[in-house]
Write a protein that binds this DNA or RNA. Structure first.
Lengths: 324, 324
DNA sequence: CTGAAAGCGCTAACAA
DNA sequence: TTGTTAGCGCTTTCAG
């Protein structure tokens, strides 16, 4: 691969002049510019991004931290992030942390050594202290890391209560909740939204809430236990779609029908929710938009050194399908 | 962030000595080594990967080319690739090409400028000429780019005929096929496997094959058309799981039952196939293993400059579930 | 065993 | 308007 030196030689100018036309910065005579451009074309020259990085201490690269790309919420998010960022000339490094602090730490270290420009964080383990320590632009998704850092959230609590209220309006009397892990803020909020609607009802007991862990297998087991303990349950609000699908499987396994015997509502609006039979009623997040806004915010912070501290809160939407 | 110079100063040695202990290369006295290590620890020093890249012309980074990470086959693959590579100190850049040659070209250019070390290609557009032009280690997945380049394949044809033979054994008489796009080699192979089993049967006509395009919406439409044209169809072999799910939806829409009226078999074994009702019978690929072997092969080529030209062919497995 | 110095390819003062 | 030059932080000869 040709270097800037060769381009300079071919064009009969200095490397500084080549650099000037490359970056369209400083004075260059029309004639010199022409000659440089011709040399660039002839040599099929491309500036070396690594050399540039070394000098500028930036890399046009950002890191995307997700718990696990296999979890169906994240591919859609990753797609949005990658689309937006690559459109602006950035490259995306994928990191699966499994919510492990050690893995996350290792990724951060590697990326800092590569002069990464920023981070989009969809995990729940990264702390404000780490961000401060590495002093790197960060935008979080679905969670507020600290009030100094921007975050893109959705109306988790409101969405959850929407779901439960909708079930009530459909005539359901005993609504259970399959919650997500308590270390995940959105699970806590969704549970709060559920409690807001039914927490004061006479029939309500804590045991109408079971741990689904945002995981299909665990949700199946929990649902079976739940239904055995409370045969009066006629609706389940699951903390996410994967959990909801687990609930449906469990209900079928017990020989009952969805939605006739038990209605199910999920949360997230992942594509999976359309692929099942019955199709899942769910509180849909604008997943792609989450990724887009996060990316745009990060780019703004990086390129304009504007330190945004906004907490964006995006609306969710009830999508009624066959499971209710 | 501290640099090698500061470490050298703190340790009272030259940068060359620090570099020697960093890379464990060349002679260093025990005493000097100790002092350098202490300085490194005190300063919390980490070598600058960019500077190293500039000199070595490698970056401990590889590119992963997929058509679309949202397509449920690819997250599992990406996960395997990322797991394996990060365990070996490599970083993974995610590229969604949408099978567009222009996008792919743009990604390649960006990555070459960053001294990327290799490529894992799960798309169908990259040509041998491009690989030669950029002269970069490449491993392909699910497709042979050229006989000079290593590829990790699965038994597409064999898997397809397994599926169709299984349907016959189950007593199905009229088996249709929902094929994938003809520019995708695996779709061609799977179709060939189907034809191998039923192509010579007296009832067979070309019109028992419809274009599903590996896409749910298109598969729904094609299935409806197929079933209207041939009401005698009692089984469908879909080219992939997404297509199969579309077929199931279409069958339901026509008021028929799976598997009673029509049995369905998919291909891929993505997690989605377990999440549906009825759960999908499918020909499962060892997706994670595909990614693992591809990554290991690439690492071998990069680190040992061994130019592997092997075509690995992995077995597939029939998983019988509720749709048959 | 160790250090000085050149150089990877680029950018940005600074001087002309 | 242009060129010279000093780095960015690292690795690797080459002398000693």
């Amino acid at each position: 691969m040709a270097s800037i030196k060769e381009v300079a030689k071919h064009a009969g100018v200095s490397v500084a002049t080549v650099s000037r036309v490359l970056n369209d910065k400083g004075y260059v005579s029309e004639e010199a510019r022409k000659r440089v451009q011709k040399a660039i074309a002839n040599l099929d020259y491309r500036p070396n991004a690594v050399a540039r990085s070394l000098f500028k201490k930036t890399s046009k690269t950002i890191g995307l931290l997700v718990p696990d790309i296999v979890n169906p919420f994240f591919p859609e998010l990753a797609r949005a992030v990658e689309d937006t960022l690559s459109r602006h000339g950035y490259t995306v490094i994928l990191c699966n942390t499994d919510e492990s602090k050690e893995k996350e730490q290792a990724y951060l270290e590697m990326m800092m050594q590569k002069y990464i420009d920023g981070l989009i964080v969809a995990t729940n383990t990264l702390t404000a202290a780490q961000v401060t320590k590495y002093n790197i632009p960060v935008v979080s998704i679905d969670r507020k890391i600290s009030k100094e850092l921007p975050g893109i959230m959705v109306e988790n609590k409101k969405g959850a209560s929407m779901a439960v209220r909708f079930l009530k309006k459909k005539g359901r009397k005993r609504i259970a909740h399959l919650r997500g892990p308590s270390y995940i803020p959105n699970a806590v909020e969704r549970c709060a939204g559920y409690l807001e609607v039914v927490g004061e009802e006479p029939w309500f007991k804590e045991s109408y809430i079971a741990e689904g862990n945002y995981d299909m297998t665990m949700s199946i087991e929990s649902t079976i236990r739940l239904l055995n303990m409370h045969p009066d349950i006629d609706a389940i609000f699951a903390g996410n779609d994967v959990s909801a699908i687990g609930a449906i499987k469990a209900i079928h396994k017990l020989g009952k029908h969805v939605p006739r015997d038990i209605a199910v509502v999920g949360f997230d609006g992942i594509m999976l929710s359309e692929a099942t039979t019955p199709e899942l009623t769910t509180i849909a997040q604008p997943i792609y938009e989450l990724g887009e806004i996060a990316s745009a915010t990060l780019i703004k912070i990086i390129e304009q050194q504007a330190d945004d501290q906004t907490l964006y809160t995006l609306p969710v939407q009830l999508i009624e399908r066959q499971s209710t």
